[in-house]
Structures are given as structure tokens and as C-alpha cells.
Amino acid sequence: MKLATLRTANGGTTAALATGTDSYLTLPATDVGALLAQPEWRLVIEKAAEAVGDQNIIAAGDADFAPLLPRAGKVICCGLNYGDHIQEMGRDLPEYPTLFAKYADTLVGANDAVEVHGSGRVDWEAELAVVVGSELFHADEDQAREAIAGYTVANDVSMRDWQSRTLQWFQGKAWDGSTPVGPVMVTADEADQHFEVRGYVNGELVQQGNTSTLVFGPAQLLSYISQFTILRPGDLVLTGTPGGVGMGMTPPRFLKDGDVLTTEIDGIGRLENRFRIHAPVPANA
């Protein structure tokens, strides 16, 4: 099944189930994360489907996608996880995952505009993201695999000028309102084993990769992360980006004001976000 978080007319949000008939069924939870926090969340969906009425249906054309997990407790990202991206960044294959964190404040919806103030080197990173469905701590890979609620689309938009200021990536990765996620989560039981990930800038294909080439797969990442921090329902793990990022091009290429960044994964959906980039004022201005 496909789950989304939709904005409502009263200014709130609601979890919703894609019905397969060009509509969404609203669910008794404020967002997908709140839904997954209910131990019997699948039963909650079943009961809502049985009691469906016209007031619970939103036409697909009227759906306004909020960030899938607007209150995610943890947003953990893996860098340098595709072989081709590692090569274009001039690094060796890692022995352990390279991890960094974001906050829920970084997340935006599938079609939201992205406002950037203060960076002139805004880069793209199309990614598969994993949604945690049950608590994990000191888990092995089998336990981690069972705890995956589903998969979604993300773009780890990166401010390279800030990222390169120090050896720590955090300051270039955790900008408020900069990370599109959605439009839906496909539950793990209905998801493909591997995913084709693509990124476009103004319709031009700039990234393409298959998650079969990940150095650390989703279950490996969740298991590894759970060794040092508890993962809970509604947490989000980004699995890394394939080659084709702007910083790896010759010469480097970055997003400009007005550019449209599209992120697409077969079987899940696509993000389409227009960027409003307000570059920093030069020091000698």
C-alpha cells in the first residue's frame, strides 16, 4: 500500500492511504509517522477502509503533499554509499557507513518550493529513503529488515560551500526546509527488492543509479545505526546518492534560482521542487 501525509483545508495534516482509484482515503492520524507509532497501524487502516465515506476521500488532483514524516524524531543519512559516487568524489570504498544527521525542520513536501538563503553552491542528491516501522536497538540485519515499514523518495540537497568549510558535513546538510521527501511511502511488503533512482535538473537527467549497487543496503544501515541509537517508528534513514552530483562535474555545476529539481524512483513516485536561491552577498560588496 501507499501512504502519504496530506495538508488539510484547516491548516493541519492527515495521514492518507492511496486507494488506487486516483484518490486518497484520510486516516485517523495526523501524519504517517503518527500512524506508524500505533502498534496496530495496519488494522487502523483496515478499519478506516471499511468505514469509508465521501467526507474521507481526497481526489488525487487535490492532494497537497506535506513532508511524509513532518515530526520525524531522527533523520539519519548515509553519504558515499554508491560506488560511482564514491569514485567521483575521489574516495575509497568505506569500511563503515559515513553517517550524518538532519532535523525534521529540514523536510519539505513533494512539490514544495525550496527557499535557500546564504548559499551559492546548492547541489542535488537523489536518494531512496527508508521509513522505520518498529523500535530497533542492537538489532541484527534480519531484525532490521523486519522493522522497515516502507520506502520513499528523498533529495539530500547540499550546500557545498558550507559543507566544505570544515571536515564535518553537518553545516552543509541540515538547512531548514531544504530536503524534499515523499510523495508517498510504499510499504515494504509491496516494494521491489531494488530501486532505480533518478534525478533531473530542469528535465535533464543528471543522476541515475540502482540500489542494488549500494555498499550498505537498507537493512545493514538500520542494523548499524541501531548499535548506537534507538530507532523508532517514523524515523527516516536516507541511503545515499548515485553518481552525477553537481560538485562532481567538470566544471562543477550547481542549482540556480528558478531551477526545478525532480527526483524519481520507479514504483514509489517523484518529487518536483522549484528552487528560490538567494546567494550570499560578496564580502567586498
Rank of each mutant, 00 (worst) to 15 (best):
M1Q: 08
L3Q: 08
T8I: 03
G12L: 08
A15N: 10
L17D: 02
L17T: 01
A18R: 07
A18G: 04
T19V: 04
G20A: 07
L25A: 02
L25H: 07
T26P: 06
T30S: 11
G33A: 09
L36Q: 06
L36M: 08
Q38K: 08
W41G: 02
E46F: 13
K47V: 15
A51E: 11
Q55I: 01
D64G: 00
L69T: 14
R71Q: 14
I76S: 02
C78W: 04
G79S: 08
G83C: 06
E88S: 11
E88R: 14
D92F: 10
D92G: 07
P94M: 05
P94K: 10
P94W: 10
Y96V: 10
Y96P: 00
Y103I: 00
Y103L: 09
A104T: 11
V108N: 07
A110I: 13
A113I: 04
V116W: 00
V122M: 07
D123I: 06
E125I: 05
A129M: 06
F137P: 00
F137I: 10
H138T: 05
A147K: 01
Y151D: 06
T152L: 08
V153F: 03
A154Q: 09
A154M: 15
V157W: 00
S158W: 01
D161N: 04
D161Y: 12
W162P: 00
W162L: 14
Q163V: 08
Q168I: 05
W169E: 00
V186D: 05
D189M: 10
D189I: 09
E190A: 15
F195H: 15
E196S: 14
V197K: 05
Y200W: 15
V201Y: 10
G203F: 14
E204W: 06
Q207E: 13
S223P: 01
Y224M: 01
T229C: 12
L231N: 01
L236W: 06
G240W: 15
T241K: 04
G246Q: 05
M247V: 12
P251G: 03
P251L: 07
P252G: 04
K256R: 12
G258W: 11
I265N: 03
G267K: 11
I268W: 02
G269H: 07
L271D: 01
R276C: 11
I277T: 09
H278Q: 11
P282I: 12
